[in-house]
Design a protein around this nucleic acid. Structure first.
Lengths: 210, 210
DNA sequence: TAGATTGTTAATCGATTAACAATC
DNA sequence: TAGATTGTTAATCGATTAACAATC
């Protein structure tokens, strides 16, 4: 879309944090921000900010700075967040339930529209106003709700099978919370979030300072 | 501890995945693995594997390879996982509850030993066999249970205050699930896990392929 | 010894930072 | 115009990969 050449993965993460600062600035009524202000607020260098933005276009005015609202809108467009996304969660256990109820998703444009589980005990129950459905219904509901993104919150042993079903139904982007790597076709984007690994980073760094 | 010079952050993440492969190999009774086998299993180059290990020492035998059990043990030591860690969770909402019940932590040596919440409605309830306690008790319980790591699963507005209490009690490593950046003293390691950002990476990459 | 694989150095690649011309 | 700040190029820094001597 915007991508003309290879963009560092880290740039995308930084754009997210720039956008949060810009939104706040706009809400405060600020009409101009400099790369230095963005940099200070997000903990990077001003050159980094300008370089990150330069990958996608020219959004500022020399000698002046950036308009926070305009730049925010550009970044949201770059990140694909200038519209809402329909998301399915598979796994209605504790984690799946917690994620279904998490308000932060809707705030960033992600609507949890359906929840699935394999356990007959859970099917039919309501979470966040949504009925938990069987995996057999997934394909149909994905079409019905225009689901494009999925979240996997099932045990490791079930993850690959669940992902296959999701991919088969046409889901194009998946977050995997199961502690196992799963494979997907080339055109599907998958990202694994490993909860235990997060703690492992801490213990390594604590050992380091000893 | 092992660190003699600066080690790439990515190396630490890769060590984690090497360790998982090595454990499996050992359990299968394999007595020798090569850097090439480790590389294939974890999706990196053999040179990368050897380089990552070289930061910490010499663990293989030239012409032969590595002993999976030995190398696993070395890596666990490097990561600070050659012992168990006591972890406190603050926030007994849906996410805090899900994390308290998550079995994957104990498997990697992390024992959730106490759970705290500010809400009087939740205090006294039991989650995963543990009583939810008030924040006033945090400092005392941290000492009692030798807590060194903490997980923050509270709303954004409460996160900084909660982190301050944790740091005051002597907790040295924190995972923050609240959607806000919090500050800590230099000697405390903090890592933020932003759930909505995970989905934002997907939408960017989906836009890219359009 | 011949074959294999490590540990390490040198080459390459990529990302960040510094510097500055363009321009408001 | 003078001062400020962008967009971009060049310099630097750091991480990955390739190559190979050491050695089992």
């Amino acid at each position: 879309m915007f991508k003309r050449f290879k963009i560092p993965e880290a740039t995308i993460g930084r754009l997210t944090s720039y956008s949060r600062f810009l939104k706040e600035a706009d809400e405060k009524g600020v009409t101009t921000v400099s790369s230095q202000q963005i940099a200070r607020a997000t903990g990077v260098t001003p050159a980094q900010v300008r370089k990150d933005l330069a990958y996608f276009g020219e959004f500022g005015t020399r000698g002046v700075g950036y308009n926070p609202r305009e730049l925010y809108n550009y970044i949201m467009k770059i990140l694909g967040l200038d519209r809402r996304w329909s998301v399915a969660i598979v796994g209605a256990g504790h984690l799946g339930t917690a994620l279904s109820l998490y308000k932060g998703f809707a705030e960033r444009g992600f609507d949890i529209t359906c929840i699935f589980d394999a356990d007959p005990e859970k099917i039919g129950k309501k979470i966040a106003g949504l009925e938990v459905r069987s995996l057999e219904e997934l394909s149909q509901k994905v079409k019905e709700y225009n689901v494009e993104l999925g979240i996997v919150a099932v045990p490791a042993a079930a993850a690959q099978e669940v992902v296959d079903i999701m991919v088969g139904a046409g889901i194009k982007g998946i977050i995997n919370f199961a502690p196992v790597n799963v494979s997907v076709p080339e055109d599907v984007v998958i990202r694994r979030v490993d909860l235990a690994s997060q703690l492992e980073y801490l213990t390594y760094h604590l050992g380091e300072t000893r």
